[in-house]
Design a protein around this nucleic acid. Structure first.
Lengths: 189, 189
DNA sequence: TCTGACTACTCACATTCTTGAGTATCATGC
DNA sequence: GCATGATACTCAAGAATGTGAGTAGTCAGA
């Protein structure tokens, strides 16, 4: 029962179709949850059956029809309850960290490559988030926006996403450097 | 097939029983993977059936007997292959972030409390990791250890864990401050 | 005119993770 | 002398997640 609240939280900013939601889950929402489209469609159907969201059909001419969803009163109540309940602790779960843990006993070459890929992927997300944050706060500066802005939830989670990606990028670079320096000069691949 | 590699990586440092492994997964190993004891016992059994680890019975007098496991040759080969394969991207998944995303539409009180709990839990882990790192590098300084140390994998993942917890703690504190300042002076709980 | 990408969604299966309960012995402290 | 907690592990059921394939129309560019 965790994806359901992520979906409700994502739907707070307006109506979305399953498809649009899937897009959102690829960018901003990925800061706090990640899911594949199929999961989202299934969850939306479930939420609708339980009355936590309401959907309406939108007929389109040049494109397939779509269904837009919004959070219902019951949905808001559910979110309220969720926010008040104790949160489970969060954990990192990352293949790449497992590889680094074992790197003393495996070939470091491919791991170094993956660290570099990760670092540059993190860099791309950093640029994206920086931009997103700028757009969210408009012409205010950050302090002013956080004091008086209307919708600061997404801004705050995006800040965490940004910091996470920065930490991740820096760590990846550092580890790649360390591993490269430890390899005997002749060893490549 | 992800827990299996985390278990193999955790077993690199010596022989462990399922019970000991569960302990390890509560502290250091939690930097890169998290699992409950039952999962570990199940995974160890599976790894043994497939020949990736070998177990041996240790008879104890004052305590229940235990089975200690070590990584087999086939296990090392499996890890090698895993390290060379492409890593999946990693994602944050955190209840508390979902709550913050929705905080404009819910009562901020309980969320602030949870943020503070998290911040102090993160503080405890920071102390633990700082200490762990110190013990791992012994009397060397960090740079020296990373250049010449024998087993730097766990050190590097612990560095990531430390940075993650620091980022998490700072973010929790900052968000709690922001939310507290936005609440009308009279509103408590 | 064909190719590939985008919109929009569905079905089915497999794996993984979580939850809750249970067994049994020993050591520690009140 | 009794409760608590540590060691050491098992079983079962269900919820959550991930994987892979498929449908079907539109649009832009080579």
């Amino acid at each position: 029962m965790a994806l359901r609240h992520a979906v409700l939280a994502a739907l707070l900013d307006g109506e979305y179709s399953g498809y649009q939601l899937a897009k959102a889950f690829d960018v901003g929402v990925a800061n706090f949850w990640h899911a594949m489209p199929q999961q989202l469609y299934a969850e939306l159907a479930k939420l609708e059956r339980e009355g936590l969201v309401t959907g309406r059909q939108v007929v389109q001419e040049t494109r397939p029809n779509k269904r837009l969803f919004r959070v219902s009163e019951a949905g808001f109540a559910e979110l309220e309850q969720f926010a008040a309940a104790a949160a489970k602790p969060s954990f990192i779960r990352d293949d790449l960290l497992v590889k680094v843990q074992a790197v003393d006993r495996t070939d470091a070459g491919p791991v170094i490559e993956q660290l570099e890929e990760r670092a540059s992927a993190a860099g791309a997300r950093i640029a994206l988030f920086t931009d997103l944050l700028r757009r969210m706060r408009g012409d205010m500066d950050e302090e002013e926006f956080l004091r008086g802005g209307e919708r600061i939830g997404p801004y705050l989670t995006c800040l965490r996403g940004l910091a996470f990606e920065e930490g991740h990028r820096d760590w990846c670079r550092h580890v790649a450097d360390v591993l490269r320096e430890r390899r005997p000069a002749g060893v490549r691949r």
